[in-house]
Design a binder for these strands. Structure first.
Lengths: 129, 129
DNA sequence: CTGGATGCAAACGCTTTGCAAATAG
DNA sequence: CTATTTGCAAAGCGTTTGCATCCAG
């Protein structure tokens, strides 16, 4: 998958491996700076873009335009509240069969997928009545 | 679903009904202006936000932060190329059963879902070899 | 009259880009 | 020594917000 990694790309990959959750580029940047690295924000974005293109890293874009990055193939999907924006992770995922089917029928090389349900969480159903 | 609609919200809903595809707020705005409306861009955003919150309109956010709007419950999912960004619509959708299940188990009132596969399209598999 | 809706322009936040310095091979 | 990578700062871009005006009821 990965051809050649720069030192910073390796550093970023390593950081992602130590995480349970997807992280934004900016949070990843400050996190790296706090461990003493002098890495720039642009480099973080460029590295994530490269890792994304070779399928190592996967991205989920929030409705505010912010993107969350994590290692690819970690299957975690969400229930997202349209009002408060909270995302509840869910375990179910019924789409793997479809994935291999699409690989063939569309000549598309699929790295990963995202699945997200939108609506109102229990709390916001009351507020927005 | 809808409580009360302002004149502009109705106008926007009408515009969406005439469309085959999801549209960005900005494109929707210029489209409305071209038909002689004096509507402002902010109003388009505010109307779409309101329609989103009552479940009439659904949103898909692209990786560049731009959001595409369409009437809710139109089931259209995508194969999206990580390199060129092209989105190929697909018909398959294996998640409806799960949807009602989640409604109950998480006390979440689900309006719609998005499902998207990411990878490389046939063309970009060659280029990026 | 009064509260909400609207248009405009400015502000915002995340991301991308230009560029010169640093680094790798 | 040349090509690539890097950090910084500035620019870009879609979206949101402040505010004065307009409009419906």
């Amino acid at each position: 998958m990965a051809i050649r990694l720069t030192r910073n790309q390796e550093r970023i990959l390593q950081a992602l491996q130590g995480l349970e959750q997807a992280i934004s580029a900016q949070d990843l940047h400050s996190s790296l700076r706090q461990t003493g690295s002098r890495i720039g924000l642009a480099t973080v974005y460029r590295a994530l873009e490269a890792l994304k293109l070779d399928g190592t890293v996967q991205v989920r874009t929030l409705s505010n335009g912010e993107s969350l990055y994590s290692l690819a193939h970690e299957d975690r999907h969400h229930l997202t509240c349209l009002r408060c924006g909270d995302s509840l992770p869910i375990e179910e995922c019924p789409v793997h069969d479809l994935e291999s089917h699409l690989n063939d029928s569309h000549h598309f090389r699929i790295f990963y997928h995202t699945l997200e349900f939108f609506g109102l969480c229990a709390k916001c159903q009351i507020v927005s009545g």
